[in-house]
């Protein structure tokens, strides 16, 4: 009987290629950011002052912690501690939830102040409109990736529960972890570009 082909390195290779595409997807947005920052430095400075650094910093800590828990989860699985691994993954997903709830409050506060695309204040305001437009698009795209990443980790938990991802065959979880680190990394760039730019 022919053995199914298992290629651990190939799986990782494919995942890294996929991460490149994600970076390029955000790259298009970062390019827009760079050009508009060059064109509207004063408005970007002013816009940065209006964002809450407390919320931003809190979310940065939350995401970095979640990257730590996912790394621990992979180590735990490699050592065969399945329960611990699943607990750590659950913690990671919970942290993703905290991030999204934070984001919800942050966005609601902005919208309550009349800062949202198409609002009467924004439409007139050239550079400020662009700053907040990019803010919504880029943090929105990132938020979508947080949700997708959490779903992927949830799928990994399911597979671990079914015994399909194990201490010997942990490629899926590692790739899920890589995706999660990418989500984290994008935020590491978004945070200073929007919150600390002033």
């Amino acid at each position: 009987m022919h053995e199914p082909h298992k290629d651990y390195l190939g799986d990782k290779f494919g995942m890294w290629l996929f991460l490149f595409t994600e970076i390029l997807l955000f790259g298009g947005l970062f390019l827009l950011y760079a050009i508009y920052l060059h064109r509207y430095p004063a408005e970007f400075h002013q816009g940065g002052l209006e964002l809450s650094r407390i919320f931003g910093a809190a979310n940065t800590v939350v995401l970095i912690t979640s990257s730590f828990t996912v790394a621990l989860a992979i180590s735990a699985l490699q050592q065969g501690r399945r329960g611990l691994c699943q607990g750590l993954l659950a913690a990671t997903i919970a942290l993703a939830g905290v991030f999204m709830v934070n984001k919800y409050f942050e966005w609601s506060a902005k919208i309550a102040h009349g800062i949202y695309p198409g609002s009467s204040e924004m439409a007139q305001a050239g550079g400020t409109n662009i700053f907040f437009g990019l803010y919504y698009v880029m943090t929105g795209a990132h938020g979508l990736h947080v949700v997708i990443g959490a779903a992927i980790l949830g799928f990994c938990m399911l597979r671990i529960g079914q015994g399909r991802v194990t201490a010997e065959d942990f490629g899926l979880l590692e790739n899920g972890g890589l995706y999660w680190h990418l989500v984290d990394l994008v935020w590491i760039f978004l945070f200073p570009l929007f919150y600390l730019i002033s």
Partner: peptide, 19 residues
């Protein structure tokens, strides 16, 4: 209608063509 490429709202249509 954010206006990232709309000159009336501070955007630049040429950037769309680049991307």
């Amino acid at each position: 209608g954010i206006g990232l490429f709309d000159p009336a709202k501070g955007g630049d249509p040429l950037l769309y063509q680049h991307l």
